[in-house]
Nucleic acid binder design. Structure first.
Length: 197
DNA sequence: TTCCGGATTACCT
DNA sequence: GGTAATCCGGAAA
């Protein structure tokens, strides 16, 4: 497992890139699910798209926790996304996890994902399990209860890189209007589990 | 207290 | 490629 120091060592944009290739694991009561992080975005101080841009609130408080603190928020009334706090304690920055390449518990991922979908019962292709921030939250069984869990000291944690020396593509973030030109999105080049090229 | 719009997804054509 | 679904947080009044 990656130690606490890993999250303290790097600034937010560097950490966003360092996390690519690492395995995110959730050891839950239902079973273990895991996947390699293949896509991330950084949200920084002074960045208008960052939830902590204006000030600290009840919702964004987990972003101000120690690096490695988990921040889960609801979006569009029906989805959740997960972030890892970064940039130092008391600094409102975080890394958004946007896509995973499944490595463990794909069956459980299927079940959790179909639980959320409307009663179509269709079996998803493996690449559709975790190729989006809200999708991977469903597949991994992450909820708001995981707010303020530490990613190096809880049932959710990161392992050392599985993909080594990956080639990283740097581009603009998805789904935002403020700060849309900032190159704060990173993904593993050529990986088919990325949400968008 | 009211109002607005969002770090998305699934399903349709 | 277009759009409905769906509701909470935060800003303004």
């Amino acid at each position: 497992m990656l130690p606490a120091e890993f999250y303290f060592t790097y600034d937010t944009l560097t950490l966003s890139q360092k996390l690519l290739g690492c395995e995110l694991v959730h050891d839950s009561a239902e079973g273990i699910t895991a996947g390699i992080i293949v896509e991330t975005e950084g949200y920084l101080v002074g960045d208008p798209a960052c939830h902590a841009y204006r000030n600290k609130t009840k919702r964004n408080a987990p972003m101000f926790g120690v690096p490695g603190n988990i921040y889960v928020y609801q979006i569009y009334g029906m989805y959740l996304c997960v972030n890892i706090s970064s940039g130092g304690e008391g600094v409102g920055e975080a890394v958004l996890i946007r896509a995973l390449q499944p490595t463990q518990g794909q069956e459980l991922m299927q079940e959790r994902r179909s639980r959320h979908k409307s009663a179509s019962g269709k079996v998803l292709k493996e690449k559709d399990l975790c190729n989006g921030p809200a999708k991977l939250v469903q597949a991994m069984g992450i909820t708001k209860l995981h707010n303020n869990f530490l990613v190096y000291n809880s049932e959710i944690y990161c392992n050392e890189p599985i993909l080594a020396d990956v080639e990283i593509v740097t581009t603009t973030r998805i789904g935002i209007t403020q700060g849309a030109d900032l190159p704060y999105r990173f993904y593993v080049k050529g990986n088919r589990f990325v949400s968008r090229k």
